[in-house]
Design a protein around this nucleic acid. Structure first.
Lengths: 187, 187
DNA sequence: TCCATTGATGTCAGTTACTGTCATGACCGT
DNA sequence: ACGGTCATGACAGTAACTGACATCAATGGA
C-alpha cells in the first residue's frame, strides 16, 4: 500500500469535492479531478466505480457500524430505540461539519447525486431491517422502524448542517426522534 | 401530432421494456431499442431524456393527480387519511398488473433504475408535503404523513404485484395502511 | 548483489450514453 | 401550388467508463 504518491484516494476525494463545489458536478470532468489529484483519469476509475461514488466514501463503513450496534443492543430495547441509538453511535464517524455542509450542498444541486444518496439510504434501511430480523422483530415492524430511523437521521442531519450552534450531530438526531415521538403520541 | 409513424413514443416504451426484460438493462443499447421501435437513436433521446426515463413515463401525471386529490379532500380529513385516499384514487391510473410486474422485475434487477425510482418517490413525497402545507398541516407532520404515504404505497404495490389473487391495487394499499395503523396503535 | 515478483500506475484504444446542428420531407393552411 | 411547420434522419462531437498491455519502484529471496 502506498508505495507511490501516498493517499491518492484521499487526494481524489478532496479534489473532487473542491471542483464539484466550484464549478458544479456536471461541469467537472473526471479528467479534471484526476489532474488536480496528480493522477490519470484511469486511476480515478480504479479507486471509484463512477464519478459520483467519490462523494460517498465511507457510507459502507457507517452501515456496518450501525448494523453491529443494532445487534449489540440489549434485547429489552424496543426496535425504534435500538435503531435510533445505533444511528447516534455512528454519528461520531461522520466527517466534520464544514466538509459535510459542502458535500450536502453539492449533492442538493444535482439530481443524479441525490439519486445515489437515496439508494445508499435505502440500502442502509435494508441492512437495518435484516439486523432487526435477527433480533426477532416482525417483518413489517422492522421495515417501519428502519424507515423511521432513516427519516430521523435525515432530519437530524439537516438540522445539524443548517444549525449555527455547536450542537453535536447525535444530539440533533435525538431531538428529531423526540419530536417524532411527540407527534405520533399526539395523534 | 403523429403525422409520421403513429405512436412512436408508445412503441419506444414497449420496445424498451421488452429488450430490458429479455437481455437486461445494461446489456441493451439505446440504439437497439430505437431500431426495434423503427426510429433512430436520436429520436429515442428526443422523447426521453435518458435511457432509464423510458420506464418512468406517467409518474409525473400520477403526481399531479395525487396532489389534486389531497387539495380536494374535505378539511376535516386527517393528513394521513387524505394522503392515503389520494394515493388510492390514483391507483386506477397505473398500467395493468402484467406490465407492472415486468417493469418491477426490470427495475429490481438494476441499481441505477432503483435510484431513479427512489428519486421519483422522493419527488412525489415532496409534492405531497407542499399540498399538505396548503391545507395548513405543520411541516414536520406533513413530512411524516407524506413519507408514510409513500411507504404504504410501496408496500401495497409490492403486495399487489406479488399476489396471485385478482385483488385490486387500491385494496392492497388500503390493507397496508390498516396494518400500519394497527402496528402504531399497538406500540 | 542481483533478479524475479508484485502491485499501483500510465497508456491507449474502444464502446456507449447523450447533445448540437443542419438537412429532409410530409403535412397544413392559404 | 406554395411557403411554413414539425417530426425525423444524418452526422459529428463530448465525456463516462472499460479492457488490455506496458512500466517501474519496492520487496524478498538466492
Amino acid at each position: 500500500m502506498g508505495r507511490w504518491a501516498p493517499d491518492a484516494r484521499g487526494r481524489l476525494i478532496r479534489s473532487a469535492l473542491e471542483l464539484y463545489a466550484e464549478r458544479g458536478f456536471e461541469q467537472t470532468t473526471a479528467l479534471e479531478v484526476a489532474e488536480r489529484a496528480g493522477v490519470t483519469e484511469r486511476t480515478f476509475f480504479r479507486y471509484f466505480s463512477d464519478k459520483r461514488e467519490v462523494l460517498f466514501e465511507g457510507s459502507r463503513n457507517l452501515q456496518d457500524v450501525i448494523v453491529t450496534a443494532i445487534a449489540a443492543a440489549p434485547s429489552s430495547t424496543g426496535s425504534i430505540d435500538a435503531v435510533a441509538t445505533a444511528i447516534e453511535s455512528a454519528a461520531s464517524l461522520l466527517p466534520n461539519r464544514e466538509y459535510s455542509r459542502q458535500r450536502a450542498a453539492v449533492i442538493a444541486a444535482n439530481p443524479s447525486l441525490q439519486e445515489r444518496e437515496l439508494l445508499k439510504l435505502a440500502t442502509l434501511a435494508g441492512a437495518m431491517v435484516e439486523a432487526l430480523h435477527r433480533r426477532g422483530v416482525a417483518k413489517l415492524a422492522a421495515g417501519l422502524a428502519a424507515e423511521t430511523g432513516v427519516t430521523v437521521f435525515k432530519i437530524g442531519f439537516e438540522t445539524w448542517i443548517g444549525d449555527e450552534s455547536t450542537q453535536e450531530l447525535a444530539q440533533c438526531i435525538r431531538e428529531a426522534l423526540d419530536q417524532l415521538k411527540n407527534l405520533t403520541a399526539g395523534a
